[in-house]
Design a protein around this nucleic acid. Structure first.
Length: 259
DNA sequence: ATGGTGGCCCGGCCA
């Protein structure tokens, strides 16, 4: 199974690129974030035409998450399921090919002194509780998405540049650690232990071409899936303008291959 | 860089 997570930064702006990429890359399950669409506006037919089923959770111009699967898509669940999604549509889960797959878009946090930073920490803590409540850590569980946290210093282009910034602070990493402690592994580090491989680059100031990125898009797997995982890569070509001229997202897809 | 770009949708927010 080829399992992918990709923050596509508006599906309206990105649909041709996403479809082009799906066809070229033979993906089985794609978790998307920042669709920026209401459920009623989602282009279900475009994915159906390529043989994929879709579950989407979005309410308009911000956030929005989806799971696209050609291995079946059962028991979709939107949000935390308790009406506490005041901070946007940021979590959707579904069972695809025997895996319980989650697509998550963690709040950005904005800055350490911003109220949204506390919301980010609380959201990550709630995600751990959600996993405890709804999943079996001994089963096949994948939590994929834009975590807006770089797990290690080697996951940012220059740690000195991020001192005092979000995405690298100890509380954010501890909150991510709480999710990992439940029974998940950041499987990418197994294949790229030394870091320096990024999944997001700011659109501004030529950051992509200068290599100024961060790895904040993660695929977290339970132990049974880690055992069956064969590779994990970032398709940084997808961060460039496509051959057909489509403009890129500021994130690149992270692709894992699971037997 | 109090910057820069890009997406929402057309003034300002969000990343």
């Amino acid at each position: 199974m080829k399992l992918v997570t990709w923050n596509i930064n508006s599906l309206s702006a990105r649909l041709p690129l996403v479809l082009e990429w799906l066809e070229a890359n033979d993906a089985d399950v794609l978790c998307m974030q920042e669709t920026k669409l209401a459920d009623s506006a989602f282009p279900y037919d475009a994915f159906k035409a390529l043989g994929y089923e879709v579950a989407h959770y979005g309410d308009g111009r911000w956030n929005g998450v989806a799971i696209v699967s050609r291995l079946g898509l059962d028991d979709p669940a939107r949000g935390f399921g308790t009406g506490e999604d005041a901070h946007g549509c940021r979590l959707i889960a579904a069972t695809c090919g025997g895996l319980r797959v989650h697509s998550v878009y963690v709040p950005n946090g904005r800055s350490l002194d911003n109220e949204f930073y506390e919301i980010k920490l609380a959201w990550l803590a709630r995600l751990r509780t959600y996993l405890e409540e709804t999943c079996d850590r001994g089963g096949d569980v994948a939590v994929c998405g834009d975590f807006n946290v770089a797990p290690r210093d080697v996951d940012v282009w220059d740690p000195a540049h991020f001192v005092g910034a979000t995405h690298v602070s100890e509380p954010e990493r501890a909150a991510l650690g709480g999710i990992l402690d439940w029974g998940l592994s950041d499987v990418f580090t197994r294949y790229h232990p030394d870091g320096g491989v990024f999944s997001w680059w700011d659109y501004r100031a030529g950051d992509f071409h200068q290599g100024r990125g961060m790895r904040i898009d993660l695929v977290l797997l339970t132990a049974s899936l880690v055992e069956r995982c064969r590779s994990a890569i970032v398709d940084r070509n997808a961060r460039k303008k496509s051959p057909a001229g489509h403009k890129p997202s500021d994130h690149a897809p992270v692709v894992v291959d699971i037997d």
